[in-house]
Design a protein around this nucleic acid. Structure first.
Lengths: 95, 95
DNA sequence: TAATTATTTAGACAAATATCTAAATTTTAC
DNA sequence: GTAAAATTTAGATATTTGTCTAAATAATTA
């Protein structure tokens, strides 16, 4: 879970995830969308990969990145548990 | 959204949130649960407050912290949009 | 096989972060 | 009103992080 939160805690990386929703892209195509050098984007992709949020497949000279949302299920479950474990208003300490 | 991800990107802070699910606690009670100094916990509580995840009410000498999960709705919506915007397998690029 | 292209790795550096100790603030109790 | 208790603020420091440039690796093309 730590790697996941770490990966999500950066606007560039979240934008990359949003980009990949529309379809797979290779590293160069991703870098082209950002005002940032390729090594920097490469590093962000690495962190996303470590978190399991993206997968990479080498196709010849290119490396294609694709989204993997199954990791988000764990986070989703954690978040939803907050909705359900909260005590109902009637049980809350009255003012 | 940035503050929210930042706040969640720390195991101590996530543990504090989990603690508060069982009921409100004051700063000292929270600090007692961790192997960390009070100023450090105070700082974590500050970041959680900045993200809107907790609220604090001063009661005499004590400051009571309570969970506010409404901020998580935004994150929940973002996460769920990943489940729905993913293309169905049939539309994915065939091998 | 030499040059070009796509991507990553390595190393440097500034900025952000987590933690600590010491001091300040505020409230309560004698 | 002084002392004690709860909490925060201030300031220091080590670690982590995001970014860059330069170099390395691997695949393609001429």
């Amino acid at each position: 879970m730590n790697n996941l939160f770490k990966a999500l805690n950066d606007p560039t990386r979240r934008e990359i995830l949003d980009l990949l929703r529309e379809g797979d892209l290779n590293a160069g195509e991703i870098a082209d969308r950002f005002n940032m050098t390729k090594p920097s984007i490469s590093h962000h992709l690495d962190l996303l990969r470590q978190a399991g949020l993206v997968e990479s497949v080498k196709q010849g000279q290119f490396i294609t990145y694709s989204l993997n949302t199954t990791v988000l299920d764990e986070l989703l479950a954690w978040l939803m548990s907050f909705q359900t474990t909260e005590k109902p208003a009637s049980e809350k300490t009255p003012k």
